[in-house]
Nucleic acid binder design. Structure first.
Lengths: 198, 198
DNA sequence: TCTGTTGTTCTCCATCGGTTCTCTTTAGGG
DNA sequence: CCCTAAAGAGAACCGATGGAGAACAACAGA
């Protein structure tokens, strides 16, 4: 998710020189351009960039390294970071954006988070999925929300609100519903869409 | 549909010299111009360009190779219909398209299907989800594929191919893996991405 | 009808480039 | 100073790519 220094360098180099290449560079070509001697090493970095959604996955095709077109007309939704049950949102340093179909957007302001962990697996939300969140401070019972618990943890759960009690339901047989008093839980957004890459 | 290096070169050459040709060039003429010695090889590339919609299909006519005038590229990929385990794809009448993020696309031609049924629920593919499929006729073991079984049913399953036997694994505890002989199963595409709306 | 041109479909094959290892080196943080 | 994560070297693997060439079918013109 978060790029290492070298990965950032390599991405910058690609973004910088994208125009100058006749064809998308191969690993070997890029190696030479960067002064590396091992394809395997570079491959590791490129893999990381693919993971981050910055480079097109080259699925054993011999077609070179291509950047994913970073929204020319800027309809992208900001990718704010990673959400893991039980930990604050881990922000992504640079302002990364992601192209998202309009049908997945809500009416209000939206952003994207990458899911980490299996706490919603029974709802079909897997580790590594991207979720589209509409920024809101209230939700209807049964909606899946991004909730800030006690000003510390942020988590993605199905919400059930009663007078005097809020229950957050994980969707994982191994986990128990969690009960809080309403003032411990602040809703930050509700789930509007989901994207997954295979 | 993304081009290989050579395909791009050939297309560029055609686009470049379109005006300079008296008549649309024949395969032989293009071969000479490009320094190729085999018509068959060039034909393969031209076919790819036809697939990509860049060159007019020359259906056994002897009219030479003509480019398709390129309008502004229409975004979005076609939504072909609904896929349900055990029934043919139910086509959507009018040509509907859907905007899909670049990162979810493969390198080949892609289309979208709406999932109906719970047969892949344990993989996090739910009823009503949209799946992005890359059109292909082969797959690696472990990939999730759209498979045509016995020219009748179409289904979305994880595939495991052995010499003499093909196993399609549903991801639903209530269903059993299905075994077929290789000639009963035709792969139509592989799963590249998933979209869900809440 | 014959003949040469043009498109189509094969098979075969070399090479290149992506992938996957293992092992080593370097850098940075406690 | 030590430990771990990041980065690089290099070898082995194997499948995608692109080319050669032969055989064939469709068609046009003589």
């Amino acid at each position: 998710m978060k790029l290492t220094r070298r990965q950032q360098q390599i991405y910058d180099y690609l973004a910088q020189n994208a125009e100058h290449f006749e064809h998308p560079p191969t690993l070997d070509e890029l190696c030479r351009a960067l002064g590396l001697r091992s394809r395997g090493s570079l491959h590791k970095h490129i893999q990381a960039l693919v993971e981050a959604g910055l480079v097109e996955p080259m699925d054993r095709s011999h077609r070179g390294i291509r950047l994913v077109p970073q929204g020319p007309d800027e309809p992208g939704i900001p990718l704010l970071g990673t959400i893991a049950a039980g930990r604050p949102i881990e922000a992504v340093p640079q302002a990364e954006t992601m192209q998202v179909p309009e049908v997945l957007l809500g009416k209000g302001a939206c952003y994207v988070l990458k899911v980490s962990g299996d706490s919603m697996i029974d709802e079909g939300i897997l580790d590594g999925d991207y979720v589209v969140i509409e920024q809101r401070d209230s939700a209807r019972n049964g909606e899946i929300v991004v909730a800030l618990i006690g000003n510390e943890e942020v988590t993605l759960k199905r919400i059930e609100q009663h007078p005097g009690q809020v229950i957050l339901h994980p969707a994982n047989a191994a986990m128990e519903p969690m009960r809080y008093s309403p003032d411990e839980v602040r809703i930050q957004g509700v789930l509007k869409g989901l994207l997954r890459r295979y």
